[in-house]
Design a protein around this nucleic acid. Structure first.
Lengths: 243, 243
DNA sequence: GGAAGGTTTTTGGCATACCACATGCCAGAA
DNA sequence: TTCTGGCATGTGGTATGCCAAAAACCTTCC
């Protein structure tokens, strides 16, 4: 597949070996539009207003300086992702998730993460596991997480993503990232979590310890219970968010 | 919604009561094309030939009797699903999964299904759990699964889907169905499983028993181990498939 | 005979025009 | 004043046509 005629194209091809970096494929407008729209949707605060946020193909095509065609293809992709929903002759609306949908997603996340923990205990290098502690090195008795919620929240997300990555399972990584993108829209998941941060840090460390000890069952259980705890928290305290 | 002003519009409106049936919404070509292509892709045996299967926009638009635009939008959606990959100026190819990708997907499936089992022990009705046995009522000592692999395989898939559905978690259901669609392409997962069917049935029954007993931990474990067993099986015996 | 180089063909990317339908406004009738 | 039918307008859906780049083909010259 790579080369059609490998017969005698080698001798004077030494130049081909020097740092030729495969020129930028120059992504298509479709993909650029997809990235731009996805980014914009994730940034906007969909839940601040009661009316659904609507998108307009023509307006978007003008703003992005391309025709409607690539915009529409990008919209079709976003719809597959579940970020928007287009209704014929009505408009394209940014999807608003209900509380139970968010809780549901967090549960799925818990499932995937606990499987990641399980895999990690059998394959990851000790060094990489220990490195997970670094995400929280700025927090401790003298600098409590609950006093730096924003910062801790970022470390929290980074930790979870790093954890999943250690599983070296592309499927787990991708699925989890998708779920996180949806869940993340809820600012209150971060802010309101203030009273959860206190218990969060010890739980994280507990997960790391179990991983280091190669205790498969325990690591799996701790990872699961930790995230299920978040789900339960949202289910109990996330009321005000969802009108 | 049905009638705006019931105040005085009744007397001579008898004609409005005659069989008006709510006209069909008539899905768009884009979605029809998506369904048709997805169906076709799932049906084709991608692994029978060494060369990748290519699709052609213009040919498809002709075959389906619509223009390229809706086809392209459908392709964009399928690409999001991971079923095809379009390379500029080269073509659209049906994605072929490697063995490790399949194994990876089955592991994620195991994670989701074990979470489903966990949820079921706390929410599902006894009646619905017991109904899961029906999928295997045609098999027993006098009619061994390994003697009717095709049929058992169908029952198997149906069982797993019904199991996940009992969790009443749309996210788990959707994610699992997506994974199954990808995994399913491997006919050998069905055929080669002949030597696995023997152990499969007892394991299924074991899961059902744990669910009925509302033993959360055990149900979760059995569901997970059962599917992880399939992953291990594919990892060990799926060699011949992937060239 | 074979290879370099030019030309045609193929293929996806994009822009544009037009269509059908949902809505809202508004004149005119009741 | 209130209601109704029609028209203007806006929105997504679809069809077409052209373009650039890559691949295939073909010509020509050593």
């Amino acid at each position: 597949m790579s080369l059609r005629k490998p017969t005698k194209a080698l001798p004077n091809m030494a130049e081909a070996d020097i740092a030729i970096v495969r020129i930028a494929p120059e992504s298509s407008f479709k993909n650029k539009a997809y990235d731009a729209l996805k980014d914009a949707i994730l940034k906007m605060d969909i839940y601040s207003t009661p009316e659904p946020v609507m998108l307009d193909e023509r307006a978007l095509s003008e703003r992005l300086g391309v025709s409607r065609t690539p915009i529409r293809e990008a919209i079709a992709m976003l719809e597959q992702d579940g970020f928007v929903k287009t209704v014929p002759r009505r408009g394209i609306m940014v999807v608003r998730r209900t509380k139970s949908e968010i809780v549901d997603m967090i549960r799925a996340w818990a499932a995937l993460e606990s499987m990641a923990a399980r895999l990690i205990t059998t394959t990851a290098r000790k060094k990489d596991i220990t490195a997970l502690r670094d995400f929280f090195k700025d927090f401790g008795k003298d600098r409590l997480p609950e006093d730096h919620v924003e910062e801790y929240s970022r470390a929290n997300i980074a930790f979870h993503q790093a954890l999943i990555s250690l599983s070296e399972s592309p499927v787990l990584v991708d699925l989890t990232n998708d779920l996180l993108l949806h869940v993340r829209g809820y600012r209150q998941l971060t802010i309101g979590r203030k009273d959860r941060t206190a218990t969060s840090l010890p739980e994280h460390l507990g997960i790391i310890e179990a991983l280091e000890a190669r205790d498969t069952e325990l690591a799996e259980k701790r990872a699961r219970d930790h995230t299920l705890g978040l789900a339960a928290y949202v289910e109990a305290h996330g009321q005000e968010l969802f009108t």
